[in-house]
């Protein structure tokens, strides 16, 4: 059975790969394919955010009593990344490569700083504190994540 950290880290990397595909296609100015790839990326990312916000974070908050703690910070960063996705979507619609490339660079580094915090700090805390219910939660999360990301 995978740990929460393993499952969610794997999904981060899958999202990264989706991101790279959209970026590659946009750089080639293959706008239609880039838009499709971008929407696949955005869907996968949104599924990841929702799995965290609706399943993982509430369980962590219930067990630790920390409702204003790390999960609150992560929710705030999700809001910022969703705003960045909107900018990218608009840049694609306008066929504006400069805007897309700059916004993509910004989202990438925002995403990776966020991932580092989750992978190094929050997920290991979840695995440690959610001991008994961990396996059931891993199953629930696995169902919610983008199916094409499954190992």
């Amino acid at each position: 059975m995978a740990s929460i950290a393993e499952l969610m880290t794997h999904d981060h990397r899958s999202c990264d790969h989706d991101f790279a595909r959209a970026e590659t296609l946009a750089n080639r100015k293959d706008w239609e394919a880039a838009t499709l790839a971008f929407e696949a990326f955005a869907n996968g990312l949104e599924a990841h955010f929702q799995a965290e916000e609706e399943d993982l974070f509430p369980r962590f908050e219930a067990v630790t009593g920390m409702t204003q703690g790390p999960t609150q910070v992560m929710r705030g960063e999700h809001v910022e990344m969703r705003a960045s996705l909107m900018q990218l979507r608009a840049a694609l619609a306008n066929r504006d490569l400069d805007e897309f490339a700059g916004e993509a660079e910004t989202l990438l580094i925002m995403m990776q700083q966020h991932n580092m915090k989750e992978e190094n700090i929050l997920y290991p805390m979840c695995d440690m504190r959610l001991g008994g219910e961990r396996d059931a939660l891993v199953n629930t999360l696995a169902i919610r994540l983008a199916p094409e990301h499954a190992a």
Binding site: M66, Q68, G69, P70, V73, M74, E77, K117, I121, L122
Partner: peptide
């Protein structure tokens, strides 16, 4: 809050 929230916050 920083003790409950080690290093995670932008703050």
């Amino acid at each position: 809050m920083s003790s409950a929230n080690p290093g995670l916050a932008y703050e």
